[in-house]
Design a protein around this nucleic acid. Structure first.
Length: 957
RNA sequence: GCCGGGUUGGUGGAACGGCAUACACGAUCGCCUCAAAAGCGAUUGCCUGAAAGGGCUUGCGGGUUCGAAUCCCGCACCCGGCACCA
């Protein structure tokens, strides 16, 4: 049962000591890795600051290439992880060889849940375990030969880094969004306008007379970062609150899969909604996959509509609707159970003659409302989802006035209306909305058809099975007094009714977003502390820049305070609050030394990844977050990237709306405040696919170690037991992970790089095939053998002039590979290199000139072996900055091309012709060809299409 | 339910509207070897045929075109996202 072992055996080494095998590859690879490190080959000079090198680099074109920030996982890497890192490295090396100043590095996103959970389960302090993990990951990645600028490899847990994360938080905290200016401005300017009475203080109060806490409350309504009691996603199983983006569609935590409950808690929020429009509009400036742009647009969820006031007694209930044209069809209203006006509108007793079903069996409206609220609040998000089909609710006892028809319509509360969207209140148009239709049927509410059905169902909703919902029809039954919408198309009717409402001051056209403000605090130990303290009155104070960083304190117990996963009534406790010595602090914030209490929440782990691209640019700047000269050079807007940003950003599609939205938001705030010239952080985004692998499961469905499975006649066995194969993610839990170290021991890093790049297009997922790897290995072996003798180690290249066929093959390869490299099509680039190499194998010898070119061609893909061959070919300098080969156009075209002759679209003959042949000559040649003459027979030729020099198509009758 | 993306040999995948299946794996045969592994060489879409040859093929069904894997319409299946958002 001998396992196959590659060409690294001792016996082979004796006969062919200079063959490119695992041992030689390992020796070459570590030698070049050491050399690159020693010489700082991949250090990219900055225009200004400590990383500048004297010479002016601004004249040189820049290329800023990034991978998405990894978490330093405790279990180490498997071969699926570095796919993107290898791709960016290949591209970066190609860019370097085409004259670009290339910034490429990799830092570590080391705060947050995964790092903390690893530390808790292993009983080690998170800083210790994370730093170990980072060291291990650096070691693993170094073996792959990634050309990173190590001086720029920052880590989010480094106080010198999170000092700036906290500084940016303060920038955001100390800003407000000026709608009139369309951008963020310093909060000091708002305060000044309150003080001078230029701007009225909400509630008409006098700014000078407000207490600190009262001022906090006013400013909280403006600040871009604010603390407020809000309904949030509380996850008892994790012991923390979560952002909407971190909760899955079925109401569970994305991490850990615990139930999530709605709970009203005082939390930190980021006013990302202020940027909703700009976050949508600026997508047009970016070179991103359309699918990702679409996901962001959908997540932000811009909808145009109108606000309309419905009078209820003395009060007004304002609703948001996207269909104001159906206002005449609004036959009832619904408020979210938590809506603030519910208590105000509820009368003391039920009106006479209402259906039993409306009261929920309660004696008074107040009781009915209270009972319904209680049941609604006890539901988890999961239950809400499951019960979504069944509409529940209760009548409030109140009636509102439909502002266009003047009709009295009943007001309900129901949990199908969400407090967090629009105004938390709707006008229900059951005839033309599926949800309202279901509710109206359940409660026996009237319906009125106001959009003419186009499917022949008639205008009586009583006979319908569901609502009729379309934009493509005309309005009917909608006239009263001076307003008539009858006969108008939907779009025109909207405009007419909106104008009518606006004139009377009972409505206006408006835009609403699905996007909510970003919940920014977590009840965690392992995160950035907020640079915020509270005085004895509870008023909030931002710490001055000089007091940053606020370091994560040492505590005995850093574990989160978790609860039973289903304990909805529990409330979060912050780990940092355990440490009274740290929480209570004496500070002089301008009016003498006083005692303050620190904010004990921490930031979510997205914080550190919201701005790391900026720090890559200027990693050791202690005076500024980033020097404007450096930011402008690497990221500033240019003709090719109108919003500026990183030139290429490669990572998984799973960050479509989390990281990528948050980072764009922070970047825009920093832009508004004048800290960066770029408007967007990432110009070109590329989503790489995943590497999947076979998973083998036994009868019970448990995965068995894939490495130990044997294949016998298309069946699979583990320990003699038959197992079944399926596809899955590569990873520890499915027992199918392959470590890159293990792989490099067998074949070398160059083979791994080449194999991963040749598996398929970078953006699709593909299965790992352990057997197929040998193909990439063989290619390198053959390349080596074409240049170096396996028995003597001497060069075997010849000094002859390359023949014309070889030159044509070479230049076609150069031409193709350049295009493939620039377009990130590495799989076809590898195929072209292999073809050229196969040509040289067949040829029997390799002219030196061709050897040098092919070495340069494959250098970005397999840099170690390329450097080694380059050195052996007599070059003393690294090829990292050598010029990538340029194709000679004279050799890119063939001397003769094969022209196919089709008869009615079927290939019947082939002709060897000059590429310059004319259509007419080609046609004559084709018609004279004996095979063509035979195939045509005596059928009349109707038409001949000649496309010189490749094709002639003859159409016969 | 809505919105995206996909479906090409035994496998991963190539193919400006113009030779479908590049390149690689696997498989078969051969060379080398005492032997095996590794390496090297040849063959390899499917059907039919002794062969020459012939026929059929890009998920399915239509359409546009001299010509469609590629463009358009409809359908099936797979993957991803959103989901009571008014």
């Amino acid at each position: 049962m001998s396992e196959t072992t590659p060409a690294s055996g001792a016996a082979e080494a004796a006969t062919e000591p200079f063959r490119y095998g695992a041992a030689l590859a390992a020796e070459i690879e570590s030698r070049w890795q050491d050399l690159w490190e020693k010489e700082g080959t991949f250090n990219a000079p900055n225009p200004a600051g400590p990383l500048a090198e004297g010479a002016d680099v601004t004249a040189k074109p820049h290329s800023f290439i990034m991978d998405m920030f990894p978490y330093p996982s405790g279990s180490g890497l498997h071969v699926g992880h570095p796919l993107g890192y290898i791709a960016t490295d290949v591209y970066a090396r190609y860019q370097r060889m085409t004259g670009h100043n290339v910034l490429h590095t990799l830092g570590y996103d080391a705060f947050g849940l995964p790092a903390e959970q690893y530390a808790v389960t292993h009983g080690i302090h998170p800083r210790v375990s994370t730093e170990d993990n980072i060291a291990n990951m650096r070691r693993q990645l170094r073996r792959l030969g990634l050309g990173h600028d190590s001086r720029r490899s920052i880590s989010t847990i480094d106080p010198d880094y999170y000092r700036w994360t906290q500084w940016i938080f303060l920038q955001i905290f100390n800003s407000w969004y000026d709608e009139a200016a369309g951008k963020a401005r310093p909060i000091a300017e708002l305060i000044a306008s309150f003080e001078s009475s230029e701007r009225e203080v909400p509630g008409g109060r006098d700014w000078a007379s407000l207490s600190g806490v009262e001022r906090d409350e006013v400013l909280s309504e403006y600040r871009l970062a604010y603390a407020k009691e809000v309904p949030v996603n509380w996850c008892p199983g994790l012991g923390t609150v979560l952002a909407n983006e971190e909760v899955t569609a079925d109401g569970r935590s994305e991490r850990g899969n615990f139930p999530v409950f709605k709970s009203n808690l005082r939390q930190w929020m980021m006013r990302i909604t202020a940027y909703a429009d700009r976050l949508i509009d600026d997508l047009d400036l970016l070179d991103w996959p359309e699918a990702i742009k679409l996901q962001q647009r959908n997540w932000i969820g811009r909808s145009e509509g109108a606000r309309v006031d419905f009078a209820v007694g003395e009060d007004n209930i304002t609703v948001f609707t996207t269909r104001p044209d159906t206002l005449f069809g609004a036959t009832y209203m619904v408020l979210a159970p938590e809506h603030g006006l519910v208590d105000t509108v509820v009368p003391a007793a039920w009106p006479a003659g209402i259906p039993e079903a409306w009261t929920g069996g309660a004696a008074t409206p107040a009781e009915a409302v209270a009972a319904y609220r209680a049941t609604a609040a006890a539901k988890s998000d999961v239950e809400r989802q499951v019960e979504a089909k069944v509409k529940t609710g209760v009548f409030t006892g109140a009636y509102a006035t439909n502002p266009v028809s003047g009709e009295q319509v009943p007001v309900f509360i129901a949990d199908y209306v969400l407090m967090g969207y629009g105004t938390g209140a709707i006008m229900a148009v059951p005839a033309h909305d599926h949800r309202d239709f279901a509710f109206a049927r359940a409660f026996g509410l009237p319906m009125r058809c106001v959009v003419e059905p186009t499917d022949g169902r008639g205008e009586d909703p009583a006979a319908w099975d569901d609502a009729f919902d379309t934009y493509d029809s005309v309005i009917v039954n909608s006239a009263q007094g001076d307003l008539s919408l009858d006969g108008l198309r939907v779009v025109d009717a909207k405009a007419r009714v909106t104008a009518w409402l606006t004139e009377r001051g009972i409505g206006e056209g408006t835009v609403n977003f699905r996007l909510r403000d970003w919940l920014f605090s977590r009840q965690r130990y392992w995160g950035e502390p907020f640079p915020i303290v509270y005085d004895e009155d509870g008023a909030m104070h931002a710490l001055p820049e000089s007091m940053l960083p606020v370091e994560v304190p040492e505590v005995d117990d850093f574990s989160p305070h978790t609860y039973d996963a289903d304990d909805a009534a529990s409330t979060p406790k912050t780990p940092l609050s355990r440490n009274e010595d740290w929480v209570s602090v004496e500070l002089d914030l301008g009016d003498g030394v006083k005692t303050y209490r620190r904010e004990t929440n921490t930031m979510p782990n997205w914080a550190g990844s919201c701005w790391y691209e900026l720090r890559y640019v200027d990693p050791v700047n202690s005076a500024k977050v980033v020097d404007p000269a450096n930011e402008a050079y690497w990221m500033g807007p240019t003709a090719d990237k109108p919003a500026g940003g990183v030139d290429l950003y490669v990572g998984g599609a799973e960050h479509a709306v989390l990281h990528l939205l948050y980072a764009r938001f922070w970047h825009k705030v920093l832009h508004d405040l004048g800290h960066v010239s770029s408007v967007e952080p990432f110009h070109k985004l590329f989503n790489q696919g995943m590497i999947t692998a076979d998973v083998f499961r036994d009868d019970r469905g448990f995965p068995v170690p894939a490495a130990e499975v044997e294949e016998i006649d298309d069946e699979f066995f583990w320990n003699g037991e038959k197992v079944r194969r399926e596809a899955g993610k590569m990873g520890k839990s499915l027992k199918n992970a392959i470590a890159p170290d293990e792989f490099a021991d067998q074949y070398g890093a160059d083979t791994l790089r080449l194999y991963e790049m040749s598996m398929g297009p970078l953006d699709v997922s593909r299965p790992w095939d352990a057997r197929a790897v040998v193909g990439s290995f063989r290619f390198l072996q053959r390349l080596w053998r074409n240049i170096v003798s396996e028995t003597t180690g001497e060069l075997v290249v010849t000094e002859e002039e390359p023949d014309e066929a070889t030159l044509r093959a070479l230049h076609k390869t150069i031409d193709g590979m350049r295009g493939d490299m620039a377009g990130l099509r590495f799989n076809t680039a590898v195929a072209k290199a292999i073809e050229l190499n196969n040509h040289l194998v067949k040829r029997g010898s390799t002219p030196r000139a061709v050897a040098e070119q092919i070495v340069l061609l494959v250098a970005p893909l397999a840099p170690h072996v390329a450097e080694e061959l380059w050195r052996r070919l007599g070059h003393e300098q690294s090829l990292a900055f050598a010029d990538y080969p340029v194709a000679d156009p004279a050799y890119v075209v063939d001397e003769t091309v094969t022209c196919v002759v089709q008869i009615k679209g079927k290939v019947k003959a082939r002709l060897e012709v000059a590429p310059s042949i004319s259509d007419a000559d080609l046609e004559a040649l084709a018609l004279a060809d004996p095979a063509v003459v035979a195939a045509i027979g005596d059928a009349p030729v109707r038409k001949v299409i000649a496309r010189a020099p490749k094709l002639v198509n003859i159409v016969t009758g």
